[in-house]
């Protein structure tokens, strides 16, 4: 998507950040916008996910802004 000019950001939890690094390098996009989430997110309940979302929404919007893409 990012290659096709669609603003994109990857949400990656702390535990999988190294895999994200590897994949980003592998596809030749080491600087693709990514936002780090605490780990785990899955299975932590709607309330916690809402809290996580609130804590990163600013970063996500910034990453999707023209200056970051």
């Amino acid at each position: 998507m990012a290659r096709q000019g669609v603003p994109a950001v990857a949400l990656v939890t702390t535990a999988f950040w190294p895999q994200g690094d590897f994949v980003a390098r592998s596809v030749g996009m080491p600087d693709i916008p990514r936002v780090e989430l605490p780990h785990p997110v899955a299975g932590t309940g709607t309330a916690n996910m809402q809290q996580v979302a609130n804590s990163v929404v600013g970063e996500v919007i910034a990453a999707l802004s023209p200056a970051s893409q």
Partner: peptide, 10 residues
């Protein structure tokens, strides 16, 4: 493929 544990295999 690069599917080693810790990088390409999670």
């Amino acid at each position: 493929a690069g599917a080693a544990i810790g990088s390409g295999d999670a």
